[in-house]
Computed example of a mutant assay.
Amino acid sequence: MRIAVMGMGVAGSYLMARLEGSGHDVTGYERNPQERHDSICAWGTIKPVLKGFCTKVGRDFDDFLIHDGKSMHVRMNNGVKFDIGLRGLCTYDKLALIKDFIKDSKVEYGRAPELKELEEKYDMIVDCTGFARKYLPKLKEDFFLPTYEYKVEYEDGVPYDDFYIEPFPGMTGYFWYFPLGEKWAHVGAGDYHKNHIKATDAFIKKHGGKVLATKGRPIRLATPDRCKPYYSGKVVGVGESIGTVYALLGEGIIPSMQCVEIFLENMDDFEAYEKAVERHYAVYGKVFNFVRSKIHGKFSMIKSLPDFLSIFRYMKKHEERFGMDIRMGDLIKVAKA
């Protein structure tokens, strides 16, 4: 087939690498010029899981590893502090890995052709444009958080030796500090009530540091069950374009790469792909309901108990996937925040 992969982010670049040598005629499109091709949002992921994905395409994840986390420091808005033991949560050079995934692929930079042009040229168009969802029908109702982030350099010592987060009141988002080696960090936040820039600037004012780069974009929290259709005509969505972000953590790297694998198993049958996506991301809807009820001030532990227990059991069962110790007490602290 002649296949167009639209958007060279996490999902699009990994899909390009997986399709290398497949026998298909694949072309990638990136709307930014090559010199401005970038990766927005913090570079946090789970090392053993990314190692597995990289092995599938002949890459060594250790070549891109920056910081191997041991503990995540958490400070709640009510002053409660605790640490979460980590099992593989790390930071890595996300942009370098994306570029490595597509280094041997045919990619047209600085182009985002209209759908009509693509339909005339290709048998399949894969929408990996993330939040933009440029080639799929628009969602009837979306749900997202604005985010903002600095890359900061600390000449006189970093403020934290490991990961640090501060959930906002009502769980409307959180502030993050992700270490990037000996003297750099990603410092940012996302917040439904749009206090993310204020919180980020307050941290910079308190701890200092030289701001090297500033980035910001919305992140979709609407889950796959709310992001249909997954396909329309020749177009099929993969990754954040169909809602593959784990709303409780705002994490989309691994879910998007998992979505690539689901797509590859079902790329000849879009209906089967839809069903496989629904099965794999079924718990995401419960996570979204939990987060949205907190944000809107409608959370009730009694009413939400079945979903709350389902979320805990899912995360506990997949501790290695989430890269951290999952404890009921910690989730309750978050729920009560």
Rank of each mutant, 00 (worst) to 15 (best):
V187Y: 13
V74G: 12
D63F: 05
V26W: 06
A189H: 01
E320A: 00
Y29Q: 01
Y154A: 10
T200E: 07
H73G: 10
G252P: 02
S13R: 01
D330M: 06
K70I: 08
L97C: 05
Q258F: 10
H73Y: 14
D63C: 12
A189G: 01
Y29S: 05
V5S: 03
M72G: 02
D68A: 15
K70G: 09
S39H: 11
P113C: 08
G297V: 06
T172S: 13
I254R: 01
H37A: 12
G88A: 02
M8V: 06
D60G: 08
A11S: 15
E320H: 06
C54Q: 03
G69P: 02
E274L: 10
R327D: 13
I102G: 02
C41D: 00
I295Q: 03
I165S: 00
Y284C: 09
M171R: 10
A96N: 13
H296R: 03
G88Y: 00
D201G: 02
D161Y: 02
M16L: 15
C259L: 02
I262A: 10
K215Q: 14
V57R: 06
K56R: 13
Y92E: 01
S304V: 00
L221T: 03
K51W: 00
A185I: 12
Y314V: 03
G170Q: 08
V287E: 15
P255D: 12
V107D: 00
Y230L: 04
H193A: 07
V187Q: 14
K286A: 07
L309D: 07
I40C: 04
P48L: 02
V126K: 13
G58P: 06
R220K: 09
I125M: 07
H37N: 02
N32T: 04
G297A: 00
E155G: 09
S300V: 02
G52S: 10
G188P: 12
S300K: 07
P33I: 15
H37V: 08
L221G: 02
G52W: 03
V107W: 05
D63N: 15
R321K: 11
K47T: 00
F168Q: 02
D68R: 15
I204A: 07
K205S: 14
G252E: 09
L65N: 06
G250E: 13
K194N: 05
V334N: 11
H280D: 13
M324A: 13
G252Q: 08
D225V: 01
G252K: 01
T55V: 11
K134T: 15
V152M: 12
L305T: 12
W176R: 02
M328Y: 11
T27L: 15
